[in-house]
Design a protein around this nucleic acid. Sequence first.
DNA 1: ATGACTGATGGAATCAGA
Length: 261
Amino acid sequence: MLIATFNVNGITSRLPALLQWLGEKQPDVACLQELKAPQEKFPEAAINEAGYQAIWHGQKSWNGVAILARGELPLEVGRGLPGDPDDEQSRYIEAVVNGVLIACLYLPNGNPAPGPKFDYKLQWFERLITHAARLIDSGAPVVLAGDFNVMPTDIDVYKPERWVNDALFRPETRDAFHRLVAQGWTDSLRTMFPGERIYTFWDYFRNAFGRDAGLRIDHLLLSPALSGALKAAGVDRDVRAREKPSDHAPTWIELALDSKA
DNA sequence: ATGACTGATGGAATCAGA
């Protein structure tokens, strides 16, 4: 089972690139973030024509998440991260596909830090930690996939010393990520590439991609029920090198599932 | 410390991203 996460940075502008990648990669599941489109502007027909069915939570201008499944409709089991009924931002959606619970998330950026946006990021993170604990306790096969807006360690940043005061790399942010993983989650990409520099995002500025000045901020975390099923992982860097790319590259894992999953 | 680049909104300039 091939499961991918891709921050598209605007699904309207990115639709041709998304369809090209879907056609080539044919993932079983694709989690999308930063749709930047209201609910009624999601390009459902084009997605369907590509062989996918989708659920999505849109929002005007910013945020927005979707789960696509090849040849089937994801069974939605959650929309909006629990823990704050006043949170209006579309950053979390959850579905079951082929017996696997897929959580698609777009964690807040949090800059500038300190400040109210950073406070919101940390609060959102605590809600995610609380919810993720429930998912772990359920014993279900779960994948937490998305743009976490966190570089977990120094080797996930091209120049860590330049990012120490950034909301994506501050100690509070890294601590939250490590507390989440410590519940029992497997960081798929890091597990498959221990000690290697592997990035998922390159800024549009200053020829960041050409210089490989990247960040690893898109993650796929596996619950204990799935940790033994991890067979492969990767980042589709070539997609970032194309015309009119997102600043993120598709990031994916392959799971070998037995019939009881 | 700043700005460079891109998308959305709205129809110019600003916000947000990371």
